[in-house]
Amino acid sequence: MIKLLYVCLLENATLEAHSDDELPDILFRSERSPEASAKSKKNKKSASRAKEKNNDGEKGCRRQSLRVRVRDLGLGFDSDELITFFYCSGSCQQHRNIYDVTLTSLLKHKRITHSAHDRVSNHPCCRPTSYMNVSFMDVANNWQFVSHLSAANCRCVR
């Protein structure tokens, strides 16, 4: 019903409007109707809840980007070209399972110990699940291609 009212207002405004300035005002007034206002409040609450979930997710595993010079990558390429390097970062605490909780407890009570060469991971890690290839030109004007250089997707992995 509100859509029909909106269409009617739009048609009337188009027929009655003498200038383009009158049309936005009528549309704006229709958006301020009590029904539209109630829907807007619901949408704002939903958006707020989604934002809260996203804020939790922002602490979680996600893909980040950084603009860097190719020579700063440490791969031995001589190039001043800038690339966007994508990497994974964040916490995976929300993805812990019974195994992780049990392992944490055993480590805490020193039933399992870390050795000098063997580190036990008691939580999932934020890692790339797929990679992107990168191409750039070196100082000798040769194209270089590096496969699996940048993270395409990130996920908490065990």
Rank of each mutant, 00 (worst) to 15 (best):
61 C>S: 03
23 L>D: 02
70 V>I: 07
26 I>M: 01
57 G>H: 08
18 H>A: 03
30 S>T: 15
10 L>R: 03
22 E>P: 13
10 L>K: 04
116 A>T: 09
148 H>S: 15
22 E>C: 08
30 S>E: 15
78 D>E: 10
8 C>A: 07
102 T>M: 03
8 C>F: 05
128 P>Y: 07
115 S>A: 08
65 S>P: 10
31 E>L: 09
141 N>I: 05
135 S>V: 02
85 F>T: 08
40 S>M: 04
39 K>E: 14
99 Y>L: 02
13 A>F: 00
144 Q>A: 04
59 K>V: 14
68 V>I: 15
156 C>A: 06
14 T>C: 01
155 R>Q: 07
10 L>N: 11
126 C>K: 00
133 N>A: 05
113 T>C: 05
135 S>Y: 00
99 Y>N: 06
102 T>L: 03
112 I>A: 07
138 D>I: 07
41 K>R: 13
44 K>H: 09
32 R>S: 12
102 T>Y: 08
27 L>N: 12
25 D>I: 13
100 D>T: 02
57 G>S: 09
58 E>K: 06
102 T>V: 03
108 K>G: 05
109 H>S: 11
157 V>Y: 08
69 R>V: 15
90 G>D: 05
81 E>K: 04
16 E>G: 08
139 V>I: 09
132 M>Q: 07
2 I>A: 02
92 C>D: 07
110 K>C: 04
47 A>T: 15
73 L>R: 00
16 E>L: 06
123 H>Y: 10
62 R>N: 07
20 D>P: 11
59 K>N: 14
142 N>P: 00
119 R>C: 05
145 F>H: 12
151 A>Q: 07
29 R>N: 12
144 Q>F: 01
9 L>I: 14
95 H>Q: 06
72 D>K: 02
87 Y>M: 06
116 A>I: 07
82 L>Q: 07
62 R>Y: 06
35 E>T: 14
35 E>I: 14
122 N>T: 14
108 K>L: 05
26 I>T: 03
17 A>K: 10
42 K>Y: 03
142 N>M: 03
109 H>R: 09
149 L>S: 11
23 L>H: 08
13 A>C: 13
57 G>A: 11
88 C>H: 11
57 G>F: 13
44 K>W: 12
71 R>V: 14
99 Y>V: 04
124 P>G: 04
98 I>M: 02
142 N>G: 01
8 C>R: 00
151 A>I: 02
59 K>E: 15
63 R>W: 13
80 D>V: 10
62 R>P: 03
49 R>T: 15
105 S>M: 04
116 A>G: 10
101 V>F: 09
81 E>L: 08
